[in-house]
Nucleic acid binder design. Structure first.
Length: 305
DNA sequence: TATCCAAGGTAAGTT
DNA sequence: AACTTACCTTGGATA
């Protein structure tokens, strides 16, 4: 086991671990105290995730636990590369002040940024991110967590670490062994065949979400829609929350409402054109950060007016 | 207690 | 290519 800590001040723009991990970007982290999403906490809860085993010889999934105490980030992990993994997973090398400066003067985005200082985008493993957001269609955030938990406890590998059992998110092969009816029993509803077919596509080597990396943004989005259950919106989520396309602006119900109320000139009828207009309004390069601050701000009801 | 409704949309069928 | 419609399940709102 490797443990460590470092000052929050190490990271430009600060870090708010709870907001980063409980803002509906990632469904692959859990609170160790078992509390559900955004419940009040008496202290500094540990969060954990189980990464697909790709960095060690054994390919055993790797557990990373992390928490934020006064001014410090602390971690404990089964991998010796925990710090590097955390920097990657939590995008700790993004300079948040530069990010907000890149977004053209916008009172709504600025108030969202102020209200959620330290919230960062995440960089989820591609397969788990893909499946999570296929499941997200017409679902509440709390139920998306439940679905991913059910998938992990039914099909994922058990990992022992520091006296506890953890469940990894299933690998493509493990999930491809599931059939539609079994997935429906996990309350996936009409998403069950989407998950089954997409898992089989990845497991057979027919396609892999990370193949989109390197393509120009709009080509990458188009490329991801080959997966069953993935349209433009889910594709944008995978690009933004996993593959590092920070210009992606997923047009979900919250953002569509915000466009209606605050950016009506960006409504252009089609997804592609509206997405492009709002992306440019948010300064292009880091437009996805603006989207995520706005999404979290609106969804948690802190508009302030 | 019963009914209705919307939730971080997508696929398939029509025009 | 643009426009409709069906789709599972559930928690919270409304009657």
């Amino acid at each position: 086991m490797e443990t460590g800590s470092c000052p929050i001040a190490t990271f430009d723009g600060g870090v708010d671990l709870a907001k980063t991990l409980e803002s509906g970007q990632s469904y692959l982290w859990r609170r160790e105290d078992g509390q559900m999403y955004m419940n009040a906490t008496g202290g500094s809860p540990w969060y954990y995730t189980v990464l697909p085993g790709t960095t060690t010889e054994t390919n055993e999934p790797e557990v990373i636990r992390v928490r934020q105490t006064d001014g410090q980030l602390e971690w404990a992990s089964s991998t010796p590369h925990a710090y590097e993994q955390l920097v990657k997973l939590l995008r700790l090398d993004d300079d948040l002040d530069s990010v907000i400066e890149s977004i053209p003067n916008d009172p709504l985005i600025e108030s969202a940024y102020e209200a959620h200082r330290g919230m960062r985008l995440v960089r989820d493993p591609p397969f788990g991110c893909l499946i999570s957001f296929i499941c997200s269609a017409q679902m509440r955030v709390s139920r998306i967590y439940e679905m991913q938990t059910a998938l992990a406890s039914t099909y994922g590998e058990t990992v022992h670490f520091d006296g506890n059992d953890y469940r990894a998110f299933p690998t493509p092969t493990q999930l491809a062994a599931a059939d539609e009816s079994a997935l429906r029993e996990l309350s996936l509803g009409y998403r069950a065949p989407y998950v089954e077919r997409t898992a089989k596509m990845v497991a057979t080597g027919n396609a892999d979400p990370s193949e989109a990396v390197g393509l120009e943004y709009e080509d990458a989005r188009e490329s991801l829609t080959r997966f069953v259950g993935v349209g433009d919106k889910v594709a944008d989520c995978v690009l933004l929350f996993s593959l590092g396309y920070l210009e992606a602006v997923p047009l979900d119900t919250w953002i569509r409402t915000a466009i209606e109320e605050h950016y009506p000139d960006c409504e252009r009828g089609s997804y592609a054109d509206t997405s492009k207009a709002i992306r440019e309004r948010f300064g292009g390069q880091y437009a996805g950060y603006a989207q995520t601050y706005l999404f979290h701000h609106l969804r948690t009801g802190e508009e302030g007016d």
